[in-house]
Amino acid sequence: MNIFRLTGDLSHLAAIIILLLKIWKTRSCAGISGKSQILFALVFTSRYLDLLTSFISLYNTTMKVIYIGCAYATVYLIYAKFKATYDGNHDTFRVEFLVVPVGGLAFLVNHDFSPLEILWTFSIYLESVAILPQLFMISKTGEAETITTHYLFFLGLYRALYLINWIWRFYFEGFFDMIAIVAGVVQTILYCDFFYLYVTKGEGRSQLSIPT
C-alpha cells in the first residue's frame, strides 16, 4: 500500500465521519441528500460482499466494516431519527436514471461475468455518479453549509488520490484496472467544478453557493 492509497482511504473515512458527526451534533440533516446516502450504502453493500468470500487483510476488513456501518448509520439518521429535518422537497434527483443504466453497464462491461464480479462492477460505476443527487440538491437550493462542503471536499479528494495511487501501482506493480480507473476519472471530474468553488469561494465564508 502506498501513501496515496492510504491518504485516499483516510480522506474517504474523514468525509464519512464528518457527515455523520455533522448530522449527529446539529441533530439535523438539512441540506443533505438522502438519495446520495442511500446510493453510497448500496455501493458499499454491493462492493464489499467479498467480506463473506475472501480475506485480504485486517486493515481491509476493518475499513469495509466501518464504511458499511457508517453508511447505514447515516441513512438511518436521515430517514428515521432526524426525518423531520430531512429536506425531501429539494432532494428530487431521479435515482432510477442512475441505477438502471449503471446496472445495465455493469452487465455489459465487466472483468468477469459472475454475480459477485458484476455487483462489484455495479458498485464501481454507481459510486462514480452517486454524488449527483447531492450536487443537484445544492444547485437547486443554491447553497451548502460549510461543513457539507468539507464533506464533499474529502469525498472528492479520496478518488483523486486513488487516481495517483493507480498511476503509482501501474509503474511499480504493473497493476492496471481499467474499470476502476475510468470510473475513478469520471468520479473525480464530477467534483472539479465543486473543487474550484471550494478553493476560490469557500474560504472565510459560512456558505457556499453553486451557480445553477
Partner: peptide, 10 residues
C-alpha cells in the same frame, strides 16, 4: 473459476 476476482482496494 474463482467466485470473484480479488479486489484489494476499497
Amino acid at each position: 473459476h474463482a467466485l470473484q476476482i480479488p479486489h484489494d482496494e476499497l
